[in-house]
């Protein structure tokens, strides 16, 4: 059996808005990925641990609350500390353009803002997953 891309779709932070995460999860499923969906209000520790147990290739985080400058880099740190150097980490949601360079600096490979077609997320993952 060929390798199947596994993606953890996670909602860090305290906002309860998961429509975007669900739409993305569905699009990734339709692209043939195995999507582990963990639900709302995940701490960075929970996300990193779930990624480890599920041995995912990609972590996709969605956030509305505005806590991304704190939470996204924390997840990157914890995941790398767990020895998962190859995992592609991406984010999305209501994130100001001005915040994106710092997130990329911190190790988030790409950030998708509202209006992004789901196809471009799929293409990005296919092109960059290890």
């Amino acid at each position: 059996m060929e390798k199947r891309i596994r993606v953890l779709v996670a909602k860090p932070g305290l906002d309860g808005h998961d429509r975007g995460a669900k739409v993305v999860a569905r699009a990734l499923r339709d692209a043939g990925f195995e999507v582990v969906y963990t639900g709302l209000r995940q701490t960075p520790e929970q996300i990193a641990e779930a990624a480890l147990q599920e041995d995912v290739n990609v972590i996709a985080m969605s956030i509305l609350s505005g806590a991304h400058p704190h939470l996204f880099p924390k997840v990157v740190d914890l995941v790398r500390k767990n020895g998962m150097d190859d995992v592609l980490i991406i984010g999305g949601g209501v994130i100001p353009e001005t915040d994106i360079p710092a997130l990329k600096e911190a190790g988030v490979s790409e950030v998708f803002t509202p209006g992004t077609p789901t196809g471009s997320i799929v293409d990005f993952i296919k092109a960059n997953v290890k």
Binding site: R4, Y37, T38, Q42, E49
Partner: peptide, 21 residues
């Protein structure tokens, strides 16, 4: 797993978040 795309939504962890840590 979807018989059409091979994709899947694995959603059982949602009910088990209290066990993750």
């Amino acid at each position: 797993t979807s018989p059409f795309t091979g994709g899947a939504i694995l959603g059982d962890r949602i009910r088990m978040n209290g066990l993750t840590m």
